[in-house]
Design a protein around this nucleic acid. Structure first.
Lengths: 254, 254
DNA sequence: CGTAAGCTTGACAATACTCAATCTCTGTGG
DNA sequence: CCACAGAGATTGAGTATTGTCAAGCTTACG
């Protein structure tokens, strides 16, 4: 699909996305870089709509999302769906630092995705952490970040208007993709249907559509075929009350 | 205050609440029970309205809430507040299994509380886990449960109506307090003002008030001076689409 | 070109919020 | 013991926000 154009499905070695992100969070040794790069030896392409992890499964096979988008969600019996968080290129999923944990949600590929088996990384973190201090610290910070995004999500959905909520969401995605180098200063690819975005933002499709139009009409964003341009990032940030999550005293200072 | 009647502030040794809860999650050795019991040697009474942890602080001093209620929240610049989760008697707070983590939210005492220093427990989990397998496993499960409650909260706020949301919330609190033995089959003390509940449920006070009245009018609950009686727990569960969180294959089977 | 999926629009209904007033407790001081 | 004050709960009226339904439109892709 046209919408999936900018996903970077063309090349298969995108382990550097994770490296780039972790470097924002701690000092990563060359050895750790090698470890991460080696993950791209065992990759797999998976079709959109595939469930990557099912709720209730044991969380014992960590993976790295190298390209494409996925999400964690749950549905009510009547079909209403809430998306809890998006899994973006360079994100780890199926990795839980608590042994024997169980998946609390289903994870779904929203676009075609490329995933890499990250078992070796998981082992490095659990069985061999002392030999990977930087990697360990960065992955801890990653977990904290994920929690921060979840809290942001709750804040949006619980206490922000549709307008603020949508602005905030776009800024968060932009920031997250910036960390892995997949967004420019004012541009970011968001290959989601409005239905999916609505399910994340706790809105109806129709209302999300109108909210996006309002953001366009107010010349805050452009949004066409999965590509968002931030026309007034500062103003957008004020409207959304956006703030950068702090997960480490040192990290993310910029 | 009348509302704080049923908090059990009268006696000071409530470490057994935590023991009771952890026993639902793993086998706790007598040694671990002693460890937990010993926490009640260093307790502190703290007034309602006190901040227990401030956002941005290092998470390095775990505590056990022995009596009273607290919550984690964040506010928008204009004062809108979202409560993310409640900290109930028998809950640990300020404990993060990731070293060097930073508090992502402020924690606030909503009632007078009694807290115990749980540093010894924190050490047992981090530095001496191999000698406390059951305790460790139970605390991991606790962390998973907390995450499950957060996801429930997001589900409620994002995709449920005020009516369903309120029913679901009451059932969740009832279940959580049942795990520590502070609720009867059909009765539970919820010492919150409607304003606080509204901030948790993402509703206005007025609307929450009307929603509670609707639940009363439909003879699903009684709610007077902080005491809730579930008149039709089954029916309430259907309305709320309530389900018990599964965090371990074994645990919480009942 | 035709066909879906996704997007947009209009009209209307339901849900939820705001404002402002009143009522009801509970604790306090006289 | 009673009056009072303040916090919290409740009510009514009016409004704003968001959802639903149904139809048309656009776009990507076979």
């Amino acid at each position: 699909m046209e919408r999936w154009r900018a996903l970077g499905l063309d090349t298969s070695s995108h382990a550097d996305l994770l490296v780039r992100r972790l470097r924002h969070l701690a000092d990563i040794s060359p050895k750790d870089v090698d470890l991460i790069e080696s993950l791209s030896e065992r990759t797999e392409e998976i079709a959109a709509g595939t469930e990557l992890i099912r709720e209730g499964e044991a969380l014992n096979s960590p993976h790295l999302l190298m390209a494409g988008w996925a999400c964690r969600f749950r549905t009510l019996p009547d079909g209403r769906r809430q998306i809890f968080e998006f899994i973006l290129p360079g994100d780890l999923y199926g990795l839980c630092l608590r042994p024997q944990a169980i998946a609390l949600t289903t994870s779904l590929a929203l676009t075609p995705v490329v995933v890499a088996d990250a078992a070796r990384l998981g082992e490095a973190l659990t069985a061999d952490a002392e030999n990977h201090p930087g990697l360990t610290q960065a992955c801890y910070a990653t977990a904290s970040l994920d929690e921060a995004y979840l809290l942001n999500q709750l804040m949006r959905v619980g206490r922000q208007t549709a307008y603020e909520r949508t602005a905030h969401f776009i800024l968060e995605i932009h920031q997250r993709l910036t960390l892995v180098g997949l967004a420019s200063e004012t541009t970011v690819a968001i290959p989601l249907t409005q239905e999916i975005m609505a399910d994340a933002l706790g809105l109806s499709v129709v209302h999300l559509n109108r909210t996006l139009q309002q953001l366009r009409r107010n010349e805050l964003i452009e949004f066409k075929s999965g590509l968002v341009r931030l026309l007034q990032p500062g103003r957008l940030g004020e409207i959304a009350h956006f703030r950068t999550p702090k997960v480490t005293h040192a990290a993310l200072a910029a």
